[in-house]
Amino acid sequence: MNSPSSEHFNYPTGRRAGENAWLWLVKMITGPLLVLILTLHLIVNHYMGSAHSGLMTYNDIVAYFRNPLIPLIEIIFVATVVTHSLLGVRGIILDMNPSQKVLTWVNAVLLLIGCSAVGYGIWLALVIASKST
């Protein structure tokens, strides 16, 4: 019942890594993870702290970062959210059918932005953790 082979017609499969299962899985895994972390983030930042109305003061935040687990979680958070958002932006750009040249640039720029944002996030988390109230 199978139709003859389609050797005569080769669809451009786009061998470049425009989009594939692994990239997509990263988005699908970081997404729900973010739902989890963001729920915590929102609760902590709006319901905890000295006045129970959120981490609203400098001292509250510095005290919160005392717990060594917190900077770690925040760093994971930054990495996840930056990855997810930049992959999302890349998805939108892919929808505009970029040429190979444009896509190479897009990849490079997004990678640069992503790495600097995560680097900055790590630096910031460590700086806050080392402060004293």
Partner: peptide
Amino acid sequence: LMVLGRLAQGP
């Protein structure tokens, strides 16, 4: 992220 950078500059 940019705004939170102020945390590094002190209270």
